[in-house]
Each structure stands twice: as C-alpha cells, then as structure tokens.
C-alpha cells in the first residue's frame, strides 16, 4: 500500500553489515557467553564460595555415615571401603557442580521479568544460551572445588586407582551429564508455560533424581529391583555414571555402554526439548513484559 508520508530510504544507505557463517557464529556465541558467565561469577566470588561450602555439607554427611557403616560392617559395604566412599563423594562434589544447570524454578522469574521476551527476539535459541552460560560457570566451580577437594582428601584419604580410559571417559561423561541435565530440566521448566504452580512437579522430579541417580547413595548399594528402574531412567547418566567411571572399576565395554546411554539420553532430551518448546512457546502470552 502506498503512503505519501513514507520517508524514502536514504540514497546513500550504508552497505549491510558483514555477518560470519552460522558455525563460526555459534562457536563465537558459546565462547562469548561462557566468558561472560565467568566474568559475572567473578563478581560474586564470596557468594560462590559460600555456596560451594554449603554444598560440601551434603556429601560430607553421606561420607561420614557410610564410612561408619563400612567400619561397623567389617571394613566395607557392597565393596566400598571408607577410602572408596571418600573417593566416591569427593568426585561426587565435582560432578554435582558440573551438573548445575538453569533451574526449572527460574522459568517463572524469566517470564515475569521479561527475560524470555528478550531471548525470543534474538536469533539464537535460549537453550544454547543456557548451555553456554552454565558451561562458563563450571570454570569457577572447578576452581573453587580444587582446594575443597584437597582438604577433604586430607581429612578422608580416598582410595582411587584409575587408568587412562577411565579418566578420558570421566571427562567426556561429566559434560554428557551436564548436557542431559540441561535438556531435561529445560523440558521440565517449560511446564511453567502451562501452569504456574509447578513446584510440586519439580520436587517429584528432584526426589526421583536424588534416589535413583547415585547422589544419595552409590547405585551399587541399591537393591536389584531399583536398578531395574535405574536402567530405564536418565538419572544415572546425569550423576552416577561419571562418578562410577572414575571410582568403580568398570570394564571397557561398561564404560562404552555408559557413554552410549548418555548419547541416547542427549538425543531423547534434545528431541523432547524441541517438541515441547515449540508447543510451549505458542502458549507464551508475554503479558506485562
């Protein structure tokens, strides 16, 4: 439709901006957002340390309890000696920090504060932002974990005997765990777009994760009927498997099977995230923001 009020584009419009290719853009995006996360978290060094110290309490309680049980049971429980438990729970701390991701509780804030609106008008999926941001945060988490791990190792000497395959698997598996947990909690967070009272659902998920992931207790100590469930759920891939890869004497095929399970859960999580996102975002009302 014509308009007499139209301001014609200037005759000497500047040339369009040069943009980099998609692959390079994504690599640059991940690097930049991760760097930003590191910069932001450095602003809160003290708060992060307090957070980390708070997180020490949980594994130390498990460690002390299981060490006492092991000693009372003649030196070991289910093959774990006190030194075995020490190794398990010191690695546990690192894995726990590595699999901290954007919480599903955060979606309500994100929607209320208009952050989601800002994300939706940018040409990069919010999932990439979450993956990149929390990956950057891990740098701080690992830096803060090292001195705590040293102190714990002095207090509770760990028994750890590892080979190169285990170490390599561990480093791949902790990132696999991080990606799976990001995807699954992203899907869970999307429920916020259907109903605002989602805390009960989140609690149910986190309770199942606590019991069936190897967080509360090494999965080797669980009864067989629980392990049957564990095999069909993603929680072991997000927590227990990376720890077991390093501290349990898993065979080569077991290590590969664990990594394949992680790959399957990444594929399932990604597909779920895409389907749910597409439906959820249609419901987004962006009212008031």
């Amino acid at each position: 439709m014509s308009s007499t009020d139209t301001t014609a584009p200037p005759a000497t419009s500047p040339p369009p901006l040069q943009r980099v290719g998609r692959l390079r853009q994504m690599a640059d995006f991940y690097a930049t957002v991760s760097r930003t996360a590191v910069q932001e978290q450095f602003q809160y060094r003290a708060a992060n340390y307090m957070y980390m110290i708070g997180m020490v309490v949980e594994p130390v309680i498990y460690l002390v309890v299981w060490s006492v049980v092991a000693e009372a049971s003649g030196g070991s429980v289910g093959g774990y000696t006190p030194g075995g438990f020490a190794a398990y729970y010191i690695v546990w701390m690192l894995v726990r920090n590595m699999n901290i991701v954007f919480t599903p509780y955060g979606w309500e804030f994100r929607i209320r504060e208009g952050q989601l609106s800002g994300m939706l008008v940018r040409p990069i999926h919010p999932l990439h932002y979450d993956l990149a941001y929390f990956a950057g945060w891990k740098v701080i988490a690992v830096l803060l974990w090292i001195p705590i791990a040293v102190v714990l190792a002095l207090l509770f000497p760990p028994e750890l005997s590892v080979n190169l395959a285990q170490v390599a698997t561990f480093f791949v598996a902790i990132w696999g765990a991080y990606v799976i947990r990001t995807l699954l909690l992203f899907v869970l967070g999307m429920v916020t777009l259907w109903t605002t009272r989602v805390a009960a659902l989140f609690e149910l998920y986190f309770t199942a994760e606590l019991l069936l992931s190897g967080r509360l207790v090494p999965l080797d100590l669980m009864p067989d009927w629980v392990l049957l469930w564990v095999d069909w759920l993603p929680f072991r891939s997000t927590f227990g498997f990376p720890i077991e890869a390093l501290v349990s004497n898993l065979s080569g095929p077991e290590l590969v099977r664990g990594l394949v399970a992680q790959l399957v859960w990444i594929a399932v999580g990604w597909a779920l995230a895409m389907v749910v996102w597409k439906r959820a975002i249609r419901r987004y009302s962006a009212v008031g923001n």
Binding site: V20, R22, Q25, D28, T32, R122
Partner: peptide, 13 residues
C-alpha cells in the same frame, strides 16, 4: 560484545 556474538556480526563492522 554479547550482542555481537548473538547476531554474528563480523568484528570490523
């Protein structure tokens, strides 16, 4: 800088 990365703008531009 973050917006540069989000929109994939070449650095000189």
């Amino acid at each position: 800088e973050m917006n540069r990365a989000i929109f994939g703008i070449a650095r000189p531009d």
